[in-house]
Computed example of a mutant assay.
Amino acid sequence: MASTTATAIQSSRPLPKDFSAQQPETIRLYPLSNYTFGTKETQPEEDPSVVARLKRLEEHYDLHGMRRTCEGVLVCHEHNHPHVLMLQIANAFFKLPGDYLPFDEDEIEGFKKRLNERLAPVGSQFSGEGVNEDWEIGDTLAQWWRPNFETFMYPFLPGHVTRPKECKKLYFITLPKKSQFQSFRPPHAARIPRMPFSSSGLWKVLSVPKNMKLLAVPLFELYDNTARYGPQLSAIPHLLSRYNFEFVDENDNVVAVTPGTPLPADQIPRTKVLAGGDDGQDTGMTDVGEGENGNGGQ
């Protein structure tokens, strides 16, 4: 890795001394083009309003204490720039894949089930023993606390709060590389040109409910953009800044590392709609319009 980094930043000027002490492990990101995204049946929201959601939180707290919520920061790259996969609901509300855990569920296993509910395709071939092993849950990136039965959450627990109502944890999840066995196709996927596998070898497909959109949002779009994405999602670039990345092409070759180089004007990343939407049309990889305002999940 050291030699690759040296090559990437080499210029006519002398190379600076090493500046990588106490760094976490370098993360390898795979290109968005490695993956295929689909849709599945609609998943209606459990609560018709914010008031109803907070009421259900209060009922949970009375019965089981603090609610635990887990969400995943799924990262890949486009044009050698990290992109985060997130859901958009009603062209306005953004959230990460995941949800609250049942009170008696193990944290990691329960989180994997929640990820499967949101993103795994429907069908017996994707259920049963071992399906949850598909997700590689990485570091805890952040913890957000809800002190009271209200929408505000904080990245710290206020000193006067001894009984928080909810704790939300964000985990770093890198998408697996595509299968090396491209010629294999299960019968139900004869018309699908490319499908990703996990490192465990399971058939891995990301499918989003029809009433949602799955977006790939570049980090620079999230950065300092609380007006559109809210404080939790707009903080993700800060959370990921502790890592160095190496960017891999479709042939598994490292093509760039951080620190990187400026992109050509025709390769500036934009938010992409990968799948979903309730208009019944195939949105493919079209850009999200600037007018679709919203904010991040609270």
Rank of each mutant, 00 (worst) to 15 (best):
L119H: 07
Q143G: 12
T140L: 11
F126W: 09
F184A: 06
P155C: 13
P158L: 00
F126L: 08
W144V: 05
K178D: 11
K177M: 11
Y171R: 07
L219A: 01
P218V: 04
F197E: 13
L214T: 05
L157Q: 07
G159S: 13
R185K: 07
E117Y: 10
T151M: 14
L219R: 01
E133V: 15
P231S: 01
F126Q: 01
Q232H: 15
L222I: 04
A120C: 02
P186T: 09
P121F: 01
F184M: 08
F156M: 12
R163Q: 14
T140K: 14
K178H: 08
N211H: 04
P176Y: 08
Q180W: 12
S241A: 07
E221G: 00
F220N: 13
M195G: 10
P155I: 05
R185D: 06
E117P: 09
W145K: 13
L202I: 11
D224Q: 15
F220P: 08
R242K: 09
P231W: 02
S241I: 02
P158G: 00
P187K: 11
P158A: 10
F152L: 15
Y171T: 00
S200N: 15
P186M: 09
Q182A: 11
K168M: 13
W135C: 07
K210G: 08
D224W: 04
N244K: 15
Q143H: 11
